[in-house]
Design a binder for these strands. Structure first.
Length: 214
DNA sequence: CTATGATCATCC
DNA sequence: GGATGATCATAG
């Protein structure tokens, strides 16, 4: 499916509650024993768009990537990102070999649709589709900043080793442990910091020459 | 077992 | 309360 078509379909979902849809698609939110399927909202959106669940590392729609992130209400009444956003696994061999432009990280950030859903509490009794954003990394300042994060991570792998990577690194994109933890986590993934998630949902600045807002 | 979908839990 | 590490369900 092309991104434009998916965007239309998703915009029709704004304001709707995802929870009944999970039931309709017979997706697990909580197992009978009470543990949770953390990816339930993402699965609902994928099913809604007609995508079968799979675990391929390529962008899920071929040329563009779909994500859903929870937003929470602040005391001031604004909806803001609740969490960082997992992007893709970090393969040290690939990162050392490939420049940013050829990386999985870049492919996943190049063109995407990100759906914000409301998060109330862990019972997930309701979750409304809040906002749908298209995002293209482009070739501007943000592109250069994220490429810098990638290069930083790359250098640290070279100088100190893959296992030295921690979530402290990176301004917009961080390398965090993911997968089996314990004494010595062996795997890392790229995560978008909440600041980057905010930028993805920020209204584009429209410059009006002569308006004084330039 | 490791990837996907992600959020939870703990530490500061 | 934010940042970092750990973890859950499911598919291949």
């Amino acid at each position: 499916m092309e991104r434009e078509q998916a965007l239309e379909r998703l915009n029709a979902l704004v304001g709707k509650d995802l929870r009944p849809l999970a039931a309709q698609y017979t997706l697990t939110v909580f197992t009978p024993s009470g543990s949770r399927n953390k990816g339930w909202a993402g699965h609902v959106i994928e099913r809604y768009l007609g995508l079968p669940l799979n675990s391929s590392r390529a962008p899920n729609f071929g040329s563009w990537e779909l994500k859903v992130v929870p937003f929470k209400l602040t005391h001031a009444g604004a909806l803001v990102p609740k969490e960082t956003m997992a992007i893709t696994m970090l393969d040290p061999v690939e990162v050392i070999q490939k420049p940013f432009e050829e990386s999985h990280l870049y492919m996943k950030l190049k063109k995407q649709i990100v759906v914000a859903r409301t998060w109330v509490d862990q019972s997930e009794s309701v979750s409304l589709v809040h906002k749908v954003a298209t995002f293209d990394l482009g070739d501007g300042e943000l592109y250069r900043a994220i490429k810098q994060d990638y290069e930083l991570i790359r250098e640290q792998i070279k100088t100190s080793g893959f296992l030295s990577l921690s979530g402290k690194l990176g301004r917009y994109v961080q390398p965090r442990t993911k997968g089996p933890g314990g004494n010595a986590p062996r795997t890392r993934a790229f995560y978008a910091r909440t600041q980057l998630v905010s930028l993805i949902f920020a209204e584009p600045v429209i410059e009006v020459p002569g308006s004084g807002i330039e």
